[in-house]
């Protein structure tokens, strides 16, 4: 049996996390390849609807990365994200989907290594959870 490789969607904000991802790439840090990075202007522009849709359509894990609190390019963008994502996680839990499939974390432009760490850990964790149960569900 081949090892389960989860499909991960990572939303990275343009000003910090995407630059962090870039740095990780330029520094040639080794990372799992099953992550699709989506560049957004701010972590607050990741509408919870996108996360819900991704999970409903069978994506195994969604990562939302933004600037550290206090560093958001739009001042309080990530304050909002910090309040929204936990609600998303709870709703998923209430319908029976593991809330660990969604994670919010902060990665600055200088933290290439942290980016590598977050991605690797998240991929491992989601791999342990197994495939998204909704993937096989035909609605």
């Amino acid at each position: 049996m081949t090892e389960f490789k989860p499909t991960i969607l990572a939303f990275c904000c343009n000003w910090c996390s995407y630059a962090g991802a870039d740095l990780a790439g330029v520094s040639r840090l080794q990372m799992p390849t099953n992550v699709h990075v989506v560049r957004v202007m701010c972590s607050a522009s990741v509408k919870p609807e996108y996360v819900m849709k991704a999970i409903s359509q069978g994506i195994d894990g969604v990562l939302v990365l933004g600037c550290h609190i206090g560093d958001c390019h739009y001042m309080t963008g990530n304050h909002r994200t910090a309040k929204r994502i936990p609600v998303v996680q709870k709703i998923l839990k209430d319908v029976g989907i593991d809330e660990k499939r969604v994670r919010l974390d902060w990665v600055s432009a200088a933290e290439g290594e942290k980016f590598q760490k977050v991605i690797t850990e998240f991929v491992d964790e989601v791999a342990k959870l197994g495939p998204n149960p909704l993937r096989e569900v035909a609605f």
């Binding site: 919870p48 609807e49 819900m52 849709k53 999970i55 409903s56 359509q57 609600v87 998303v88 709703i91 998923l92 209430d94 319908v95 909704l134 569900v137 609605f139």
Partner: peptide, 23 residues
């Protein structure tokens, strides 16, 4: 983008998104 125009049932996202919006 979130709920397809045609076809029923609308899928899980309809209910998850509604739940979030009313939280």
């Amino acid at each position: 983008t979130f709920v397809p125009e045609r076809g029923v049932p609308p899928g899980m996202s309809f209910h998850l998104i509604r739940a979030y919006h009313l939280a």
